[in-house]
Structure formats: structure tokens, C-alpha cells
Design a protein around this nucleic acid. Structure first.
Length: 274
DNA sequence: ATAAGGCCCTGACCGC
DNA sequence: TGCGGTCAGGGCCTTA
């Protein structure tokens, strides 16, 4: 599922195809994929606008348009943005198509229909509540620790909370906590300074490595050219459904539920008690 | 502030 | 082969 490294990869690889292109028309097959405004308005306001640039904010892709509006896309669990020729037949999971002025088209494919499209004057309407970017240089251990201290919820839940920090989801939260040797159920405000330092270090290191590996191809994640990423080959606990063993201790990876999300960890590396 | 549950969805998987 | 049931989960919402 697309989290920060996957969305960053998609944004990077989509940019050369899109920046400077004009949207000629939009086809919407599943109207509810358009969150704002109405699907009809969405289709009528986009044509003629040039795509000036692509950015990523959290798990959102943000398109700045020549008309001053902002197109925002969230891929949720199973979304993908695929570069196709205009002649390409959309498969049954394609929910919308952006037709470009050079004979190419972008297919928004999303089997589970969780994804969303927004076209807004004020991007803050969609992005306003997001927390800081995990890779921002000013996310120091002190800054992170200060914010962690305000919450007693399980640290795993906080890492997945987009208003606390933007872009981390279920699988990278598990990988980060494993690498930092922190139990996912530890109350956020119980972490020691050393643990906060480790958390911040691996938080950035794991996301950066996953970006270098072009994301993790689990679920339906695909790059815009239809290719896969290789970040999941370095996963040590996430998505280890087959009774895998901790690579350090050889003990079985355990699975618990944290806030309703499946959570994988090593009970030896990651102790609940200090 | 926190917790728990539901909702949206469908493909994959399971047992029969 | 098919059928019905269960599950996963990001983000958001409601209720306690």
C-alpha cells in the first residue's frame, strides 16, 4: 500500500510525464472517487489547465495547476497512477483517466475504491491538518521528543497518526519500531532520550532507503510505468505472515492488534517493559 | 485526551 | 467448481 516512500516514488517518476502538459479532458468511471467538488465540476474545471509542478505532502500527491487551483490525489490502500497511451484500454479497476495534450493518459487505478481526488482553491482544506514531514531536517530528536511527551497512546498508533507525523503507515511503522527496538505498545510519553534518538534515526533511515528502492510492492502498488519497487525485500517484520523468524534472535515474529491494525514485532528485540 | 467501533470497498482466502 | 463468510486497512467519523 502506498506510504511515503511509494508516494514519493510515484511523484518523482510521474513528474517528467506531467509537468508542462495540459489536461485535455477527464473521464470518471466511479464518481465517488472525486471528493471535491462534484464529479461533474471536477470534469469541467480541469480541461485546459497546465500542470505546473508535482509535490508530495504526507501520502498525498499535490499538483499545482496553471489556473491557480490544486489537484490533490490520495491513493489510500490500493491506488496507482499509470502512464498509458491514449489508445490503451483501461482495465476494470481504473476509476478515472486524465487525458493529456500529447497523446498520453494517466489512469487512476484503484481496486478497492478507497482513493480520492480533490480539486480545490485552497490546498489547506485537504492538507491543513497534516503533521510535519518525517524527512524534514528540523525534525530533531528534541522536537520529536517534545511532541511524543504529550501523548500516552501506543507509539505505533502515534506514528500512523497523520496529524502527528505525515506519511508513515502501518508497514513502515512496524519496520521503524523494529529497527529502533521499541515495542509498538509502549506509551509514547514513556520513551527514554536514547529511544527517541533511535526512533528518529531509523524513522528517517528506513524511509530514505525505501525511497532509494522505489517503494515496496505489496498489495497493488505499482510505479507509473507499471514496474515494481524492491523495498519490501528489506522488510524484517512487516507483512511477515508466514511465521518468519527475527533475523537477530531467530524467535518467531509476533502479530498483535494495535488500534485495529495488524502489528508485527519481535518480542525479544522489542520489550514492553523498560 | 483517549478508546472503541463503524464505514467505505473488493480481492484473497478459507471451509465445506 | 462454487458458495458464503471473513479479513485487511487509511482516513475519517461517531459515541463513550
Amino acid at each position: 500500500m502506498p506510504e511515503l516512500p511509494e508516494v514519493e516514488t510515484i511523484k518523482n517518476e510521474l513528474s517528467p510525464w506531467l509537468v508542462g502538459r495540459r489536461i485535455e479532458s477527464v473521464t470518471v468511471f466511479w464518481y465517488r472517487i472525486v471528493r471535491l467538488p462534484s464529479a461533474d465540476e471536477f470534469r469541467s474545471r480541469l480541461p485546459g489547465q497546465e500542470i505546473k509542478g508535482l509535490e508530495r505532502r504526507g501520502k498525498y500527491i499535490v499538483f499545482s495547476l496553471s489556473g491557480g487551483e490544486t489537484l490533490i490525489i490520495h491513493l489510500k490502500m490500493t491506488g496507482a497512477l499509470l502512464v498509458k497511451s491514449e489508445a490503451a484500454e483501461p482495465d476494470k479497476h481504473v476509476r478515472a483517466i486524465f487525458h493529456l495534450d500529447n497523446g498520453n493518459a494517466i489512469h487512476f487505478r484503484d481496486p478497492r475504491k478507497f482513493g480520492g481526488l480533490w480539486l480545490v482553491e485552497d490546498a489547506g482544506l485537504v492538507l491543513g491538518n497534516l503533521g510535519p514531514e518525517p524527512l524534514a531536517p528540523d525534525l530533531t530528536p528534541q522536537a520529536l521528543g517534545h511532541r511524543l511527551a504529550k501523548h500516552s497512546v501506543p507509539v505505533k498508533a502515534l506514528l500512523c497518526d497523520q496529524t502527528f507525523i505525515a506519511g508513515i503507515g502501518n508497514m513502515y511503522a512496524d519496520e521503524i519500531l523494529y529497527a529502533a527496538k521499541i515495542h509498538p505498545l509502549r506509551p509514547a510519553n514513556s520513551l527514554s532520550p536514547e529511544e527517541i534518538e533511535r526512533l528518529r534515526h531509523y524513522l528517517q533511515a528506513i524511509l530514505r532507503t525505501a525511497i532509494e528502492d522505489k517503494g515496496a510492492s505489496v498489495e497493488n502498488y505499482l510505479r507509473p510505468d507499471g514496474g515494481v519497487g524492491t523495498a519490501h525485500f528489506k522488510f524484517r517484520v512487516a507483512h511477515r505472515l508466514g511465521g518468519e523468524l527475527c533475523p537477530i534472535h531467530g524467535t518467531p515474529i509476533e502479530r498483535i492488534m494495535v488500534r485495529g491494525r495488524g502489528t508485527y514485532f519481535c518480542p525479544v528485540c522489542q520489550k514492553l517493559t523498560a
